[in-house]
Design a protein around this nucleic acid. Structure first.
Lengths: 345, 345
DNA sequence: ATCATTTAGGCAAACGTTTGCCTAACTTGT
DNA sequence: ACAAGTTAGGCAAACGTTTGCCTAAATGAT
C-alpha cells in the first residue's frame, strides 16, 4: 500500500509511481532513467532500476515532449501514397526510423501546397524532431519551416527553394543511361514521355536523356517529346503517349520518366494493338516491384528505394548533431529488361 | 511591450501569451477557445478572439494531450504498405480522419505480432484517440488493448478474438460472385489459389466460392485448391500456381483470393507460354487500380477501398460516443473484365 | 581543527492545457 | 432594503517530464 497516488486512478506508471515505491524523489528517478551518472549511489540506482522493471515503467513521450519541446516523432510528408514508389520510400524510412528509436507519422499531401502547409503546422505543434519531405512542393509553410532551421530532409525531389539535405538518385545520369541503352539497341530516334508539370526530378531525367542523345549526334529536334496533364502519372502517361502518337505515330522507343508513365503508355498500346516492346520499346524509371510479375514488357531503371530509409535517417542524425549535410546520391541500377524482351532477344 | 513572458523565448503563442495580451486570465482564454458559453462577457470574448486571430494562437496538442490524457491522433496499424490495397485503405482513412479533425499516424507492422504490440504500446503512450487495425493478427497487446476498452476498428480482417467494430466486404459473397461468374462463362472445374496461412478474410472468399460451386452441383473434390507459402501475396500466388499446375495442369479458370495472387500466377503463365485469359481465366479480388492499365487479362472483383475511410471514421465516432457498433459490410462490385477479355468476347 | 571539495539527492519551476472551486459584483424578487 | 441568484472571471492543481539550484553529509587537504 505504499503507492497510493497516480497509480490508483489510471493504470499508468509514472515517475511518481516509481519514486513513491522506492522512497526517492522523482528527480532522482528521472536522472537514473536518463542515465545521468554520478548523481545517485549504486545502491539507489539498483533499487530504482528494480522498481522500474517490476512496475514496468516507461517514460511518457507526451510529458517529455511538453517539457523538452521535442519528441521522438518524425513527420513524413508525401504526395499520393497510391504511387508504389512513394509507398516504398515510406516503408523503408519507417523501418529505419523505428530502428533508430523514432516513430514516423505519415501525412499525405496529395501534392497540394495548402495541405502541405497544414501538415507542417500540425507537426510543428507536435514538436516533431524532423521532417522528411518526399517530393515537396514550394509553399509558404515550407519557407517558414526552413527559415526556422527545423531539421528537414528532401527525398526524391530537391528542395524547391534550393539547398538542403537530399536523398535520391542522380536523375540526369539515369536519363543518360536510358539513352545509352536505347542507342545500344539501335534505336536512333527515341521519344520521351513526361509530365507537363515542371517537376525537378523527372525533368532532370528527361534532360539527361536528351543531352546524351545529342552528344551522340542525334539532332535535338529529332527527339520527340510529349507531355500530358493529369492527376496521376499513370494518366499523364496515357495522355502523353496519345499526344505523341497523334503527332507522328509510334516511335521505336521511348523513355518514360517514371514507371507509372510507362504503364499509362502501355494501355494506349494495348488499345491500339501495338506490340510492346517489339514495336516500341518502353524504358521506365523506378524499377517497380510489380514489373517482374506483370510488366515483362517493360525495361526499367531500378531505384533502390528500400535503401533510402537508412540514408534519410543518417541525414537527419547529421542535422540533429549540427553537422553539415550534403546531398546523398544513391546509385541507380542499370536498365533491367523484362522477360518479354529477353524472349525476343 | 505588454507581452514579455512565453513569447520572448521561442516563437510559439500559448494561452499565456493571449492572456497577457488581453489582460485576462488563461482560464478565461481557455474557456473561450473551447467555446464554453456563459463564462465571459461578450466584450471579453470579442477582445480575446481578436487577440487569438491577431497572434495566430492555436491550442497546443501536446499540452492538451497531457492534461486530458487524450489526443486527436488516431493510430493505424497496417501490415506491409507495399500492398496497394493496404495503401488504398491508408489513403482513404487518412483523408477521412483529416476531414474529421484528426491526424493519422501510420505504423507498418509487417504482419508480425511483436511489432504490432510494440506499436500498440507506443501509441497508447501517445494517448491516441483510437486504433484502426488493418488485417490485425492475434497478439497479447491486442487482447490487453481490447480489454482496456480502447476504441478500435478492424478493417479488412475481423478481430481475431471475435467481435468488435469491423469495416470490410462480405468475403463469402465475393467468393460466391466469382463462382457465378465462372459458371456463367462455362467454366465447370475452376480451381482456387490462396495463401497457406489461415487468414480469415481470404479464407472466407475461398469457402464462399467453393460453397457456391458445390451448390451448383460441382463435387467438392473436383475443385482443385492450391496454396503457397511466401512473404507476400504475389510470391504466394506464383508458388500456389506452380503447385496447382504440377499437380494436374492448368485449369480453365481460377479464383485468386487477391489480385496480388493473380499477379503471381500470371508470371508463371508467361514463363509457361500459357495465354491468360484465353487458356485460363483468372479472377482476382481487390480491383487494383493498376489492372485497368497493365493487367487487362485480369477479371477482378473490385473492393471500394476509397470509401473505407468514411466508414472507419463513422465507426470510431460511434465508439467515442459510447454507441454500440455493428459490422459494416461494404458492397463489393461485380467482377470487372479486362480489355483482353472483352476483345476475345 | 579548519576549510574546500565532492557525493547524493531533494525542491520547485517550467512546458501548455483544463477544470473544480472560489468570489466579487451585479441583477432580480419581494 | 435585503436575501437569493446569476454573471464574469480568477486561482491553483493536475497531467509527466526535466533541470537549475540548493543543501547536508562525507571526504580530503593542510
Amino acid at each position: 500500500m505504499k503507492t497510493r497516488a497516480a497509480r490508483a486512478h489510471h493504470g499508468s506508471v509514472s515517475l511518481t509511481t516509481v519514486a513513491e515505491d522506492t522512497g526517492v524523489s522523482i528527480s532522482t528517478v528521472s536522472r537514473i532513467v536518463n542515465g545521468e551518472s554520478g548523481r545517485a549511489s549504486p545502491e539507489t540506482v539498483a533499487r530504482v532500476e528494480e522498481a522500474i522493471a517490476r512496475l514496468g515503467y516507461r517514460p511518457n513521450p507526451v510529458g517529455r515532449a511538453l517539457r523538452q519541446r521535442a519528441s521522438r516523432v518524425v513527420a513524413m510528408l508525401s504526395p499520393n501514397l497510391d504511387n508504389p514508389a512513394m509507398a516504398a520510400i515510406a516503408v523503408s524510412t519507417e523501418a529505419a526510423l523505428r530502428a533508430a528509436g523514432y516513430v514516423m507519422i505519415l501525412c499525405d499531401t496529395h501534392d497540394r501546397a495548402e495541405l502541405q502547409d497544414d501538415y507542417l503546422q500540425a507537426m510543428r505543434e507536435q514538436f516533431v524532431a524532423g521532417y522528411v519531405m518526399v517530393s515537396a512542393v514550394r509553399s509558404r509553410g515550407l519557407e517558414e519551416t526552413l527559415r526556422r532551421g527545423d531539421p528537414m530532409v528532401f527525398v526524391a525531389r530537391h528542395n524547391p527553394l534550393g539547398g538542403g539535405a537530399y536523398v535520391g538518385i542522380d536523375n540526369r545520369a539515369a536519363g543518360a543511361d536510358a539513352a545509352d541503352f536505347m542507342l545500344a539497341r539501335g534505336i536512333e530516334r527515341p521519344a520521351v514521355l513526361m509530365a507537363a508539370q515542371n517537376v525537378s526530378s523527372t525533368q532532370e531525367r528527361a534532360s539527361g536523356f536528351i543531352d546524351r542523345l545529342v552528344a551522340h549526334g542525334i539532332p535535338d529536334n529529332a527527339i520527340r517529346r510529349a507531355s500530358g496533364p493529369g492527376l496521376s502519372h499513370i494518366e499523364i502517361g496515357y495522355a502523353a503517349a496519345k499526344a505523341l502518337v497523334q503527332q507522328g505515330g509510334w516511335p521505336e522507343g521511348a523513355l518514360c520518366v517514371s514507371d507509372m508513365i510507362a504503364y499509362g503508355a502501355y494501355r494506349l498500346a494495348i488499345e491500339s494493338n501495338v506490340q510492346i516492346p517489339q514495336r516500341c520499346m518502353l524504358v521506365g524509371v523506378d524499377g517497380n516491384a510489380l514489373n517482374h510479375w506483370i510488366a515483362p514488357w517493360l525495361t526499367s531503371i531500378r531505384i533502390p528505394y528500400e535503401s533510402f530509409g537508412g540514408h534519410v535517417v543518417a541525414q537527419l542524425e547529421s542535422l540533429w548533431s549540427g553537422e553539415p549535410t550534403s546531398e546523398v546520391r544513391i546509385p541507380h541500377e542499370p536498365p533491367m529488361v523484362g522477360l518479354a524482351q529477353k524472349a525476343t532477344a
